[in-house]
């Protein structure tokens, strides 16, 4: 299988849905990748089993502030520099790259990196959705270290985090980001193909493309059936009454009034992503599952930072990969990791 420029619209749409309200801009990312693929040709998308188990696979992502990325656009070299630097540090050559977060901007940029490096892209990632922290991966659950991790800004300035557990890498990277200009190209989680097969979520990019195809069909035809085929459902349709964005000190909140039953209210807790949905007080969706909002009329995804009162939206829920529902997964990326303390068993 391969990813060609004709697949990018689907990949971008699916990536936005998987962003669960976060994950960053996919429009300019799709333009970037399209240019790269038009120049270098399609990228080969491989299953980890297609590689030699001893082959090195390097994980790539942009890390940091998405609003900043809309302005300080990628130069391109920073991603290649990040991978090459990590290879040099380890004294290995990568045989393939994979995604860390197959959602939002980070579902698209690995395709360009694979093309730039003339390497295949492994159809795998570490999150299966968007999460805010780089240690919120199934790699962490499988004890694959994020370090050594490389961060590169567009000027080529480079930070190498040589060691540390994954939470420490996250902490150190976060501390370095302001000095790097708020976002950086990153190469991290180097692992063998055999480890990818055991540790990673597989089928990530093909799932994003499939979801995107479903979403775009729904946008054109108003057919909503494809959603349930992906295990998703529409939780609520309504108008946004009020939005309080996240602050440095606490979560944001949005309240919605149901379209047909005005007494019925949905409350959404949000940070960079949508985290929790309460329908008249009952939990109907909760991280690690994905809560995504789409415009009622156009079915264009609405990101958390663009949610405004008066918008009419459909609230969708998509299941997270099963590993996020295991105890270790919930501890790392469940409600409590976002400051939401729910009763046992929820």
């Amino acid at each position: 299988m391969e990813i060609a420029s004709a697949d990018l619209a689907d990949l971008a749409a699916g990536a936005t849905l998987l962003g669960s309200g976060g994950g960053g801009d996919t429009v300019s990312a799709a333009i970037l990748v399209r240019r790269v693929l038009e120049r270098y040709g399609p990228v080969r998308l491989v299953a980890p089993s297609e590689l030699d188990p001893d082959d090195w696979v390097i994980t790539v992502a942009a890390i940091g502030a998405i609003t900043v990325m809309l302005e300080r656009l990628p130069g391109g070299d920073e991603f290649v520099t990040a991978v090459r630097t990590l290879e040099r540090w380890l004294g290995v050559r990568a045989s393939a790259v994979q995604g860390m977060e197959a959602a939002g901007f980070n579902a698209l940029i690995p395709v360009a990196v694979a093309a730039w490096l003339d390497l295949p892209l492994v159809d795998a990632d570490g999150m299966g959705r968007a999460f805010p922290r780089l240690d919120q991966t199934v790699f962490t659950l499988s004890e694959v270290p994020a370090a050594p991790a490389v961060l590169v800004d567009p000027s080529g300035d480079t930070v190498i985090i040589g060691s540390g557990d994954n939470a420490a890498v996250e902490r150190l990277a976060r501390a370095a980001l302001p000095a790097l200009g708020a976002w950086a190209a990153s190469a991290l989680y180097p692992m063998r193909a055999g480890q990818v097969e055991r540790a990673a979520l597989t089928g990530s990019f093909s799932r994003a493309i499939r979801l995107g195809r479903m979403l775009r069909t729904a946008q054109r035809t108003r057919a909503r059936a494809g959603l349930s085929a992906e295990g998703g459902e529409i939780l609520f349709s309504g108008a946004v009454l009020q939005v309080r964005q996240r602050t440095p000190y606490g979560l944001g909140v949005a309240t919605l009034e149901h379209t047909r039953d005005r007494e019925r209210t949905l409350r959404i807790e949000l940070a960079d992503e949508f985290l929790l949905a309460l329908d008249d007080g009952s939990i109907v969706g909760c991280v690690p599952d994905l809560i995504s909002l789409v415009d009622t009329r156009s079915w264009q995804p609405v990101s958390a930072d663009r949610l405004t009162p008066g918008r009419h939206v459909d609230v969708l829920r998509l299941p997270a990969p099963a590993r996020w529902h295991e105890p270790a997964g919930r501890a790392l990326a469940g409600p409590a990791a976002f400051g939401l303390y729910l009763p046992e068993g929820m």
């Binding site: 502030a65 998405i66 609003t67 900043v68 805010p132 976060r174 964005q245 000190y249 958390a304 930072d305």
Partner: peptide, 15 residues
């Protein structure tokens, strides 16, 4: 008036 904190950045900047 519309105030949006910049996502994924420690809380020191707002749009």
């Amino acid at each position: 008036v519309d105030e949006v904190p910049i996502a994924y950045l420690p809380g020191n900047a707002v749009r």
